[in-house]
Design a protein around this nucleic acid. Sequence first.
RNA 1: GCCACUUUAGCUCAGCUGGUAGAGCAACUGAUUUGUAAUCAGUAGGUCGUUGGUUCGAUUCCGACAAGUGGCUCCA
Length: 646
Amino acid sequence: MIRITFPDGAVREYQKGITALEIAKSISEGLARKVLAASVNGQVWDATRPIEDDSALKLLTWDDADGKSTFWHSSAHLMAEAVESLFPGAKFWVGPAIDKGFYYDIDLGGRQITEEDLAKLEKKMNELVKQNSSYVRKSIPKAEALAYFTEKGDEYKLDLIGGLNDGEITFYTQGAFTDLCRGPHIPSTGPIKAIKLTNIAGAYWKNDSNNKMLTRIYGVTFPSQKELDEYLAMLEEAKKRDHRKLGKELGIFTMDDDIGPGLPLWMPNGTIIIEELEKLAKETEQAAGYKRVVTPHIAKENLYLTSGHLPYYQDGMFPPMELDGTKYYLKAMNCPHHHKIFSAEPRSYKDMPLRLAEYGTCYRYEQSGELFGLMRVRCLHMNDAHIYCSREQFAAEFRAVNDMYIKYFKIFGIEKYVMRLSLHDPAKLGQKYINEPELWLETEDMVRKVLIESNIPYVEVPGEGAFYGPKIDVQIWSTIGREFTLATNQVDFAQGRRFKLEYTGADNAPATPLIIHRAPLGTHERFIGFLLEHYAGKFPTWLAPLQVKILPISDKFMDYANTLLQSLKNADIRAEVDDRNEKIGKKIRDTELMKVPYMFVVGEKEVNENKVAVRRQGKGDLGSMDIDTIINQLKHEIATRSSDQE
RNA sequence: GCCACUUUAGCUCAGCUGGUAGAGCAACUGAUUUGUAAUCAGUAGGUCGUUGGUUCGAUUCCGACAAGUGGCUCCA
């Protein structure tokens, strides 16, 4: 007998070799039907795998993340079975569960798969589900596994096995399909009730662009059709807040073939948002002791040779233009220009820290396939600044930058993000990373301490640092689930030396400053793209391109509306009168759809009482108010940058 | 850059198997003077992404290019 400990602490005895599924059955048939896998001593196992020793057991169902991913991974195998039956000779690489669903990378031997084939595959999978085949685990000696796939001529699985040790190779079979797989899997195909193959994509073998491209099929499955329907409905909802769609609808930005890919044109409404953001940045930076600078959009080749960007990142820059035998580049970053401002005058320790800020325009030649609405563009405006400081000042400066992030995030209500602390890889010192082991450890430690003391949750990622120092990235996700760095805060102990930046210390000796690169509001492009999705287009009043729309009941009240408009303008509130010859219902509908925060409805009653009927976007009629009262309320809401959506 | 798909009026989309295009909304004009999410009528608007080819004839078939979309790679 073995002793099984359950999550609630209960301990029961069972026959040695019993499976999690059998244990579930002994509790209730209903539970057994729901069990997808089991956590045995913290490891995810097949629910059908015999348990030989005393163990801590947790039965995993659809409600557990590990249960879901087991379900999806098994679905990938099911899809592979369908692919093999429809495309005989297909070779399979890997088919993992992902955040939402699964994929399988497949070599179809030069054949193409189309959208229609996905429907066929779904149909085949549904047939296979009806057979309710068990997923059978089998341990295979390495030699036997190699022989099996050598005979099959499957170089991909042979490659995988090559990296495994004898004794840790398992095969899983369901129905007619056998695959090399670590597992675990759900007991059988039956529970996969709802299947949707979402898209086809190319994916490089082993994620290396030098390798062959495999066909990747993405899919998602659920235990019931209802859940699939809900998921698809959710995707439809997400599409509605896609910044590319909203950006067009709200007149924020546009793209034009004649301008070029990745070069957004900011329309008047978008420009208002840009100006509000810059106002916020200027206020904040001025209060924090920054000095604003302005630098040209181009510079000579030599600058980027000094910075080290040209040898490493030339592919990311627009090709140079040649004038009088000298090459000029569009700037892809502002730092070298700012360094030159630092070195333009002799600096003393009394000038430090020197904080130079600029909403700098940069051009980056992003690969065509990488461009994505406003989130990934070739012309960007960066909320950039460089802080030159001594080592002693560094921690305080870095912390102040961090505080600025938090302040901004509070204003915008940004809560769903991950702070990523990117560190160096000691093995690559001198190659990918500047060879200053002590400085790396010292600055990494300083950064880590700031994060901990500021009580900011973060994840550490070794091998992701910049070549000149560790950094913090703020990772966010677009509505369609793509990950982006919204903002970045970087330590740089290399550029100072490359540019021979110096200041005279209190001891009269020259010293090289540490540099902090920071962009808490990222770029206008990405930040506004993010905000569009974050707010679903419903900007808080201070950011809204149009803050108040005055809606006269009929044109009899136009004079009153125009007087009101003047009062709003005098109070620096962005307002317009809807002077169209339309019914009030139509005016309200159109204004709601344009997501204007406030509507002032004025008719006979309001004129007589010298009031306005206030309507809040998305909330409806707020009743009638005195003009001064509502204007003062709006002024306050705007001045405090309230994100209150009441 | 790579794989796949898409590209018809300002927007959203129709347009069996090739015979030079249609709706709704928006725009414009007129009527209506309206009370909290679409008043009615009329008018105008398209070299069917660009460019080669096949064909008596191409929006429709094939190729190239461009832009976009979903991924992959990349992201200083």
